[in-house]
Simulated assay, not measured.
Amino acid sequence: MSEWDVEGVELDAYFKRIGYDGPREATLPVLTALHRAHTGTIPFENLDILLGRPIEVDVPALQEKLVAKRRGGYCFEHNMLFSAVLATLGFEVRRLLGRVRMGHDEYWSRTHMVLVVTVDGREWLADTGFGGNGLREPIPFAEAESEQDGRKLSLVRHGDPQWILRVGRPAGWFDLYGFDEFPQHPIDVVVGNHYTSTSPRSPFTKRFVVERQQDGTCRTLAGRTLILTAPDGTVTEHPVPLDDIGTVLSTDYGIELSAEGLAAVRAAAERVGR
């Protein structure tokens, strides 16, 4: 029995949430279709932190939040749920931790989670939890370049961490995150999630970010700014009036908040300025 408890996954409800009605075999086409459906439907967001709610990463809590309540989450939430779905379907899954880089070289804490999935003896990098800048579908777990929806991606080996995922930008390759292949355990995810959701050093405790990728364009709501990143990396920014934040959350990301929750989000947006 695996130490990763995948009990609590309600496949029918999950498939309905992401709009998937295809086969349920452990094949590459199924993995690819599920990955695309998940990333195209469930947004990346950290709103509950600003609402004073704890972030839980056990499967029943994730099923309730991301599926039943139709909310989003960040990497630990997305990839813990997705890995449980995959394991239930019979996929072989490795959970790994990494460091967000976003163009920087310094060492940040291990606050990102990725998955390596084996299908017919071949490994694939899967990651449903890096928001609009991340993968839309799995890529070969090997040094190689890929293209998804007009975006160029590259997975390379590079010192410590051993692997770096990069995206093509007008100025060249841009590092998204790095990770190694050291085995991880559930407690490692719990610790990383606790730091990310509670530490005053974590960027997620200072401001909110909501993202989704649609037709290759990353749509990021960061405070009072809507940032659109085109497939070629070109960025445009649009101010969002405080009174319109609720509408943007609803129409662009499918997130409905209570009046109290929306007031808290608006206050956070006003406090940080963007």
Rank of each mutant, 00 (worst) to 15 (best):
M113N: 14
P60F: 03
V6H: 06
V59N: 08
N133F: 06
H112F: 10
P183G: 10
I49Y: 05
A142N: 00
G150I: 01
R99T: 14
H194L: 09
N133S: 10
N133H: 06
T251N: 11
L97N: 06
S199F: 06
E56R: 14
P241Q: 11
N79L: 05
L86G: 05
S258H: 07
A68S: 08
R136P: 07
P23C: 12
Y177D: 02
T27I: 13
L153P: 03
E45N: 06
V248N: 08
I55H: 04
L135Y: 13
E211Q: 11
V100C: 11
Y195Q: 02
E64F: 01
G8P: 02
V156G: 00
D5A: 09
L89C: 11
T220S: 12
L89T: 10
P170K: 02
Y14E: 04
R36P: 03
F182P: 02
L28A: 10
L242Q: 15
T217C: 12
E7H: 03
Y253P: 01
N133P: 01
E137L: 07
Y177M: 02
G22R: 08
P161K: 05
P29W: 13
H238T: 13
W108H: 15
L165W: 00
L242W: 10
R17P: 04
H78Q: 00
L66M: 14
T111Y: 13
P241D: 14
V248T: 13
E270S: 14
D188L: 12
H38A: 06
L262H: 08
G22M: 08
T198Y: 02
N46G: 07
D21Q: 08
G134F: 02
S199I: 07
T236D: 15
N46V: 05
R17D: 06
G233D: 15
D244I: 04
Y20N: 07
W163P: 00
S109W: 10
F141M: 11
R207L: 09
P241K: 09
L242Y: 13
D105Y: 08
F15I: 02
T39K: 02
E92N: 15
V6A: 09
R219G: 05
D188V: 08
L153S: 03
N193Y: 11
Q213N: 09
G52I: 05
V265W: 06
E211Y: 01
G52C: 04
R36S: 11
P23M: 07
E270K: 15
G72M: 03
M1C: 08
A268S: 11
Q214R: 08
S146W: 00
T27A: 14
L228T: 09
G273N: 11
E92D: 15
G52W: 02
L96W: 04
F208C: 09
F15A: 06
H158M: 01
S2P: 15
Y74K: 00
V100E: 06
E25F: 12
A264E: 07
I227C: 13
H78W: 00
T39A: 05
W4S: 09
T234C: 09
S2I: 10
A144G: 00
T225S: 13
L34R: 04
E56M: 08
R101L: 15
R219W: 11
H194Q: 05
I139Y: 04
I42K: 10
R274H: 10
A269P: 11
I42V: 15
G52F: 01
L135I: 12
E64T: 06
T39H: 02
M1L: 09
L28F: 14
L242S: 15
T41L: 07
F204V: 00
R53S: 02
S109T: 14
L51K: 03
I187E: 13
E143D: 01
